[in-house]
């Protein structure tokens, strides 16, 4: 039950919320998920099972001798996704607790 909730329902909700087609139909579909959404909201508020220490930003760190190279490759046109496919610059891998 909970597994289903965290692995299926929440990502689905996120996708729907981020979707560009936030027309009446989208909102209508969102309402159809009111039950699981409410359950998840309360569950995470009470159990906080997704909370962790954000070591990546809460640890004091400094960079030195930064060397940057940026080389233009080409212009991409007609892309349908709003963000870069496969982007991983914000990834965090060292969290002890893995939720999703």
């Amino acid at each position: 039950m909970l597994e289903t909730l965290t692995t299926d329902v929440l990502p689905a909700l996120q996708v729907m919320a981020a979707s560009d087609e936030s027309d009446a139909r989208g909102i209508g579909l969102l309402f159809l998920l009111a039950g699981p959404a409410f359950y998840a909201l309360i569950y995470f508020r009470y159990r906080n099972s997704h909370k962790r220490h954000h070591h990546e930003k809460e640890t004091e760190a400094s960079t030195h001798d930064m060397r940057a190279t940026d080389t233009f490759v080409r212009r991409l046109t007609g892309l349908s996704n709003r963000t870069m496919r496969g982007a991983n610059h914000k990834e965090v891998r060292g969290a002890l607790r893995k939720i999703f």
């Binding site: 560009d20 070591h55 640890t59 004091e60 760190a61 400094s62 960079t63 030195h64 001798d65 930064m66 060397r67 940057a68 190279t69 940026d70 080389t71 233009f72 490759v73 080409r74 212009r75 991409l76 046109t77 007609g78 892309l79 349908s80 996704n81 709003r82 870069m84 002890l96």
Partner: peptide, 26 residues
């Protein structure tokens, strides 16, 4: 109607020294 995007693609490289102070682990 569907949304489309144009974007410039770059090769990106970053090299730096990193000093981490008091990283704390259980």
């Amino acid at each position: 109607d569907e949304r489309r995007y144009d974007a410039d693609l770059y090769d990106v490289e970053r090299a730096f020294d990193l000093h981490v102070n008091d990283l704390t682990v259980e």
